[in-house]
Design a protein around this nucleic acid. Structure first.
Length: 905
RNA sequence: GCCGAAGUGGCGGAACUGGUAGACGCGCCGGACUCAAAAUCCGGUUCUGGCGACAGAGUGCGAGUUCGAUUCUCGCCUUCGGCACCA
């Protein structure tokens, strides 16, 4: 080969054609070889590939190709998360069927993906909206019904009173429906739930066995599952048969309870509303607004008193019962005991409504001061001092406002906010002086013996509501019969197929609107019955898709092949999935394990959460102040002579545009960069190289076309330099014994680069620094102008190494260059990953930094064998160091071998 | 509001286990080649002062630990991700 110029389009077409015709990436199970399952989160077929996809699948492809070169049997599959809300919205906007829109998007995006040259086994591809896929999901659901892991209960949804439809949280903007603009209401409807809480403890414990997952994700999941130990306490209600049950993690504050708060949906609140118009009005007010947790958490805390009185379980005191808008019916028991002195939210609520605030916990310092004073809050001498005597200090944090707190204690008021730390009990009768743990035990024992409470482990995690009142999803396989209630659809009647050829207007799901579709007969009694018309949450499909890749065509979810491939060795996807998807994914694996499909407990060994792809935004404002967003591709940046950004103009008219900052690529800001046009302009290898170079994979990546041009320059230079090398006469093999110092230095850098890149790919997943090391090596080869036999031999070794190490990132150009280097085999054919030659890595001298008082003053070059004393002597004699230590007393010299000498004067 | 991250030159980032801050790339400045431009190649480029040798400052802000802190601890600020019906 003697091509002068690098032409990416031709190089890429040739390489891709070779891989396709040799079916290079189709894999089968092979028990004799170690497997490697490399998985990317499957894309939603939104219409066109975006840079986030490109980044995700390039990371996955680099890892896959690297593992392949290590000799693994690598499975890298691809599929489509094809059900979902955007298809319904597109269907309304374009007057087409959601299925049609989805399938055409898949066709287009598959073609786009294929131009990227990913090492994907396309024979395993599927779309989740295909009945061949979702039939298994339906069968799994009926299995889980039979196992008792599914139940139906009422649950709250966003209701648009104008469109008469359920809204997703995303469709609620500032408490109003996105299309109708009507104030959204909360409405209770029956929905199906999966008992993920049965697995809460295992999901929590399993995180400890996932060293390959980021700590941030594990922490978020732990907090989401939210295990807490506490007490269920029964508060009897005057004149009512049933008590209110509350859960608390702070039973030590029980004597500070001054009222109870219940959710607006709580049965007691409903009962109060029957006789009290103010309560009814408040509950009605609580029905407005969305159901999202963030809306509830940031809204103004409000409440209303009911006429009910609760009885304190220890003192027998009567306490008012309030309805409060911040108490969630679907968390805990829907009721909480309010301790304004020691809970900030209760404190604010009590301050607002002028309710009693009691101080029942003090810091150890205040306890000691009080003990010294020998009196309690009411001024009664001696009653405290005895009780405060024996407590052990645990988890006691000293607050800054110690003195204020003593004042507050003496006056029995809390003015500056709740004291929420653990401490010692006061004003708590027989429990005075106890610490958190001792008072917890004492109060728990008493309530348990009196039947008024019980220790309980509570989880923040709620069961998974899987019902959606939408059309474009997997039908829930349940039949309702007047005689038999909810009956699972029998296996032989599955799948329940979603009709695809429908009219979709957006007001009502076509299967809800069609009176015929739902009509059926009861599988149990044979009587007339109706099908469920709700569909599954699309997280259902994305919870088990990885499993289906292992067993294409299997008659059940998976077959015996699943245990060869599972668990996933490397999973890659966006950090936005850190909690929901990744928790359902882990949960579903355990469900499948318990159905006998898997031997493993967790679905994925290693997880990499990639950052977002961001880009500059530009805009112009019209006369009304509305922003018209301009795509970065249409803008030219202007700089001052120091290279700082001075402004930007629209290429079309040369007039200035405003710069709006760097944000996530999105249609709304028109700052998306189209991967297809980038590939057309620079080639897939350059796009892949830039997306791996510009940032480490877990950080956000700023798309910058000048940077892309830089990557293109690097590949062109590699092409040119390598072809210049192969045009030289043949050279002998490298003879390590014959090399001169310069040749040895280059050869050492070659082998250091092998180690660096191997570590970056295999352990660190730091592709950006691997590329930087390869650029440094090419820079060194370019400067190396030795045309001797051994010089050419070392240069050849350098080029072979660069091509092999770069192959996972830019496989097309490496495919061509490998052949240009005169190799008979193509690179893809089991070409092994290079190993560093330890003899080539040996250094005989090392540079040490010399500091005086921690400030760098010079460097010394020392033989590798030099002793600490030698280093110290050389450092003290170093000319650039001497002026800084002259006339000073040397207190200490720290010598860190191979690194630094620090002289302290 | 709660949970989790991030913050380093003009810009993207590097410094992996507490040990020479700024690798690599972009941009910019200067030069070579060219009639000229593009492309390419060579050199410089944290800031301040100085012709210079050099000196001082410097990793969001404020403290602390240490011979030594981008890295560890505490307290703030700002930005981003998630908050259960977007996927």
């Amino acid at each position: 080969m003697t091509e002068k110029n690098y032409e990416p389009q031709a190089v890429e077409a040739a390489a891709q054609n070779y891989w396709t015709t040799t079916r290079a990436f189709e894999v089968i199970e092979d028990a004799t070889r170690p497997k490697y399952f490399c998985l990317s989160m499957l894309p939603y077929p939104s219409g066109a590939l975006h840079m986030g996809h490109v980044r995700n699948y390039t990371i996955s492809d680099v890892i896959s190709r690297y593992q392949r070169m290590l000799g693994k049997n690598v499975l890298q599959p691809m599929g489509w998360d094809a059900f979902g809300l955007p298809a319904e919205n597109a269907a309304i906007a374009r007057k087409t069927a959601p299925a049609k829109w989805t399938y055409s998007n898949i066709e287009h995006m598959r073609t786009q993906l294929q131009t990227m040259g990913y090492a994907i086994d396309w024979t395993r591809e599927f779309a989740t909206c295909n009945p061949d896929y979702y039939v298994h999901e339906q069968r799994m659901f009926t299995r889980l019904m039979q196992k008792g892991l599914v139940y139906r209960k009422n649950s709250i949804v966003n209701w648009d009173p104008v469109d008469q439809t359920v809204l997703a949280n995303e469709q609620v903007i500032d408490g109003k429906g996105w299309r109708s603009g009507a104030v959204v209401e909360k409405r209770e409807i029956p929905q199906w739930f999966l008992k993920i809480t049965d697995y809460a403890q295992e999901l929590l414990d399993g995180l400890d066995d996932l060293p390959g997952w980021p700590d941030s994700v594990k922490t978020m999941q732990r907090n989401w599952i939210g295990r807490s130990e506490g007490l269920d306490i029964q508060f009897a209600i005057e004149g009512e048969a049933d008590p209110i049950s509350v859960f608390t993690t702070r039973p030590d504050t029980l004597m500070g309870v001054s009222f109870l708060s219940v959710a607006a949906e709580h049965p007691l609140a409903r009962k109060a509303a029957l006789s009290q118009p103010e309560v009814a009005a408040f509950i009605e007010e609580c029905r407005h607004g969305g159901t999202a947790e963030v809306d509830i958490e940031i809204q103004e805390k409000k409440g209303v008193e009911t006429h009910f009185k609760a009885i304190h379980p220890i003192t027998g005191e009567t306490l008012p019962v309030w309805v409060a808008n911040f108490v969630l019916m679907n968390y805990g028991t829907g009721a909480v005991m309010a301790v304004p002195g020691h809970d900030q939210r209760d404190w604010e609520f009590a301050t607002k409504y002028d309710l009693l605030i009691r101080m029942v916990i003090v810091s150890v310092g205040v306890r000691d001061a009080v003990r010294e004073l020998g009196r309690d809050a009411a001024g009664n001498k001696d009653s405290m001092s005895a009780a405060l005597g024996e407590s052990r200090a645990i988890d006691v944090v000293e607050p800054a406002g110690e003195v204020d707190m003593l004042d507050e204690f003496e006056n029995n008021i809390i003015t500056e906010g709740a004291y929420t730390e653990y401490g010692f009990l006061v004003n708590s009768g027989e429990y005075d002086g106890l610490n958190f743990r001792d008072s917890f035990d004492a109060i728990a024992a008493r309530l348990e013996s009196e039947g008024k409470g019980a220790r309980r482990v509570n989880f923040r995690l709620r069961d998974w509501g899987v019902s959606r009142q939408r059309y474009w999803g997997c039908p829930i396989p349940v039949i309702y019969c007047a005689n038999c209630e909810a009956v699972p659809v029998p296996d032989e009647q599955l799948p329940v197929v979603l009709p695809e050829d429908v009219e979709f207007t957006g007001v009502k799901s076509p299967i809800k609107a069609d009176p015929e579709w739902r009509k059926t007969v009861c599988p149990q009694c044979g009587g007339p019955a109706e099908r469920e018309t709700d569909t599954f949450d699309t997280f259902m499909e994305s919870s088990w898709y990885y499993a289906r890749y292992t067993s294409p065509g299997a008659s059940d979810m998976v077959d015996a092949r699943a245990n060869y491939w599972a668990p996933v060795d490397q999973y890659i996807g966006g950090i936005e999935h850190a909690i929901l998807h990744l928790l359902y994914f882990r949960f579903y694996h355990k469900l499948m394990r318990d159905c006998g499909f898997f031997d493993s407990d967790e679905p994925a060994i290693n997880l990499l959460c990639q950052g977002m792809v961001i880009a500059d935004t530009f805009y112009r404002e019209d006369v009304q102040g509305r922003k018209e967003w301009i795509n970065p591709a249409d803008v030219e940046i202007q700089r001052d002579e120091k290279g700082r950004v001075a402004g930007a103009v629209l290429k079309a008219d040369g007039q200035p545009v405003a710069i709006g900052g760097t944000e996530k690529m999105a249609k709304s800001k028109n700052n998306g960069v189209d991967p297809e046009s980038m590939v057309h302009k620079f080639g897939a290898d350059t796009v892949r190289l830039f997306s791996m170079f510009a940032a480490p994979p877990d950080q956000s990546l700023e798309w910058n076309e000048a940077g892309v041009e830089g990557m293109s320059r690097f590949l062109k230079r590699l092409w040119r330099e390598l072809h210049a090398h192969v045009s030289q006469p043949d050279h002998p093999a490298v003879n390590a014994a014959e090399l001169d110092a310069t040749q040895k230095t280059l050869r050492r850098q070659i082998h250091e680069t092998i180690n660096k890149v191997s570590d970056d790919f295999g352990r660190r997943l730091a592709f950006n620094t691997a590329i930087a090391a390869l650029m440094e090596l090419l820079n060194a080869v370019t400067k190396f102008d030795d045309m001797s036999d051994q010089g050419r031999a070392v240069r050849h070794e350098a080029f072979e190494t660069i091509v092999l190490l770069l192959n996972p990132i830019t496989p097309h150009i490496c495919h061509a260059l490998w052949q240009a280097l005169g190799n008979a085999e193509t690179l893809i054919e089991n070409q092994p990953w290079p190993k560093a030659d330890s003899a080539a890595l040996v250094r005989d001298a090392v540079k040490l930094a010399v500091q005086v008082n921690g400030k760098l003053r010079g460097t010394i070059e020392m033989p590798i064998s030099a002793s600490k004393e030698d280093c110290e002597r050389a450092a003290l004699a170093e000319p650039s160091v001497v002026p800084h230590i002259e006339g000073q007393t040397i207190k200490k010299v720290v010598v860190v071998p191979g690194k630094i000498v620090n002289i302290v004067v």
